[in-house]
Design a protein around this nucleic acid. Sequence first.
DNA 1: TTTAGTATGTGATCTTTGTTACAAAGCCTG
DNA 2: CAGGCTTTGTAACAAAGATCACATACTAAA
Lengths: 211, 211
Amino acid sequence: MLEKELRDAYHFIFEEELLVEITKFGTLREVKAGETIIDIGDYVKSMPLLLEGAIKILREDKDGDELLLYFLERGDTCAMTLACCLGHTKSEIRAVAEKDTHLVMIPIDKMEEWTSRFKSWRNFVFESYHSRLTEMLDTIDTIAFLNMDERLMRYLQDKAKINKNEQIQVTHQEIAYDLHTSRVVVSRLLKKLEIEGKIGLQRNSIMVHDL
Amino acid sequence: MLEKELRDAYHFIFEEELLVEITKFGTLREVKAGETIIDIGDYVKSMPLLLEGAIKILREDKDGDELLLYFLERGDTCAMTLACCLGHTKSEIRAVAEKDTHLVMIPIDKMEEWTSRFKSWRNFVFESYHSRLTEMLDTIDTIAFLNMDERLMRYLQDKAKINKNEQIQVTHQEIAYDLHTSRVVVSRLLKKLEIEGKIGLQRNSIMVHDL
DNA sequence: TTTAGTATGTGATCTTTGTTACAAAGCCTG
DNA sequence: CAGGCTTTGTAACAAAGATCACATACTAAA
């Protein structure tokens, strides 16, 4: 099962020999939606590759206030975690399963070995850093340049994409946590978006109309 | 001169053979304070290593509004640029010399070659990605979790550190651009900080008291 | 030394977002 | 179906920041 999912997600990227190595040294980890995969301050002893599902990456300040940074999907890895592995430092972020997900966990020492042995691995690592930097820029644009209603709209679009349809299962309070605002503000803006015909509201779920 | 500055800034990090290679294939570039080194949309054909001086990295939205991301100092490289080089994409950021600065420009093909040849180079590249990700997290924390007065205070502290003293040459308008707010807001908050005894204000310059 | 340009100080007002408070609706369980 | 919990709706008010308007101060060039 690990092998099949691994090939599905990564055969375009990794050479055969590396895929064999991953199957040999990686271990499958299955997490249910909502479970925390890595928390802030955790020492990270292995690096996850996402086989199936989705993960949301969160930042937290000293008062416990959260902020969603971005989502990871199949074929992604968490560059933050990667950076922690290589730097032997604690995790700066929290990773929570957005859906039921399957990961392969790669031990750090293998990671380092593969970095010298496989060009495709090196490229993958660089590529991961690159996408994560780009996502972070996007996050910064969003919080620095957009108003809450636009941020909310983007959030709903992202969520819809990950769930592969327009029906999102989420409460206003959860959205408020992710966007680092209050439930009241979210409810207000959602109602406005509903009146504008952009979304439909039901208890515990939102239907996104025009993406 | 390139060689001396290179050794001063990088001899702890790079092995002798690599230092020689850099001297051979890198070219020195000198920029005056205020000059733009890389702009948004530029194709980057070589990667800069900072020898001396300081650079500020800015993000811009569609309306031309700016936001300071972070500063780079001696021994740093711009991981964003690096990512662009490796990904062969356009620059997502603007880099402006904060002081008069000296850079070595490394041609892309050498960069790629060194990645396989020198372990110290690989580590440097990973390390750069790591620090830049960390800086970006810091930036996100700042804009997401802090009020303008706290952001302003941090900004002044960073500036003071870079200029190696507490006297900062800057106008309120420039600060407003960097923090993506208005001059009026900056003036008001600066005045408040002055009344609190934290800074002293003169035309075109600010004295930071308690760091 | 006058003048024009640049930089700063500050009041007044508006918009956006945050906070508090409470009502009503939906849902689950005994 | 009654009571309790969760979720949503909304009014009223507070706070931060943005915008406009204008006065004043400093500086450099004519």
